[in-house]
Structure formats: C-alpha cells, structure tokens
C-alpha cells in the first residue's frame, strides 16, 4: 500500500484537501489533483496513477464521462467514484461504466482507506 499513487478529482478544493489529508496520513502519495473530468483524463494519461478518485458532478466534463474516457484509453484503470448521498443511480451508472468501487461523502477515513485497499490491494 505504501507509495501507491493517487489522482484526486473533485471540483471543490475543500474536498480535494480533505481527501488528500486522509490519504497522505495513510501512506498514499498524491500524484495529482484534477478539478474536472477534462483535467482528470489529461492528467491520467500523463501521471498514470495507481488509482483515481472521481467526483461525479463537475463542470466541463462530469465524472461518468471521464470514467468512460479513461476506461477507453486504459481498460485496466482503477477508478473509485466519490458520491454524495442520494446519487444512487449515478453511482450505478459509474460502476457500469467501469468504476471499481465507490466511497460516500462526507468522508469517513477508515471507510475510504478500506475501499482503496480493496481496489489496489
């Protein structure tokens, strides 16, 4: 688990920060931060992170489209969806689009770490 490189995608800086803090504290390396789907796709190709966290509702390009684009380019990409409560249908769509798992806001550190561990071991 140590040193796994993560790309955080969220349009809200506060959310990125929270997530970053949780992940760094648990030994992950933050390889990049993206503010929307377009940036996420771009950065993914450059950084090739071990895992991407992906917010769903974002400007420019939403998370689901970004998942599809990334999966298209790299079918082995490991993406975890970050969802708010009440986004059930979207989460299912994201899972069907290739996301490996999902985490729910507000963040609970242990649950996030568990989810990431299950996905990237």
């Amino acid at each position: 688990m140590l040193g796994k490189r993560i790309l955080i995608t969220d349009d809200i800086a506060f959310m990125r920060m929270t997530l970053r803090n949780i992940l760094v504290k648990n030994g992950y390396e933050i390889a990049g931060e993206a503010e929307d789907g377009v940036q996420a796709v771009e950065q993914y190709m450059i950084i090739k992170p071990d895992l991407v966290t992906m917010d769903i509702t974002m400007p420019n390009m939403d998370g689901i489209t970004a998942i599809k684009k990334i999966m298209e380019k790299d079918p082995d990409a490991k993406i975890v969806v970050v969802s708010a409560m009440g986004q059930k249908a979207l989460v299912i769509e994201a899972l069907n689009s290739g996301a490996k798992d999902f985490i729910v806001k507000p963040f609970q550190p242990d649950r996030i770490v568990e989810a990431l561990q299950k996905v990237i071991g």
Binding site: S83, M85, K88, V91, D101, V104, R111
Partner: peptide, 17 residues
C-alpha cells in the same frame, strides 16, 4: 456489510453483479 454502510442498495447491487 459493515455497520453504518451508506448507499447499501448500491452495495448489494455490486455484490449481485
């Protein structure tokens, strides 16, 4: 599932799949 799990229906869906 773990205690207090959120969006349980989606979890069960994942298991189902």
């Amino acid at each position: 599932l773990r205690e207090g799990s959120l969006l349980k229906s989606v979890r069960s869906y994942m298991v189902y799949k």
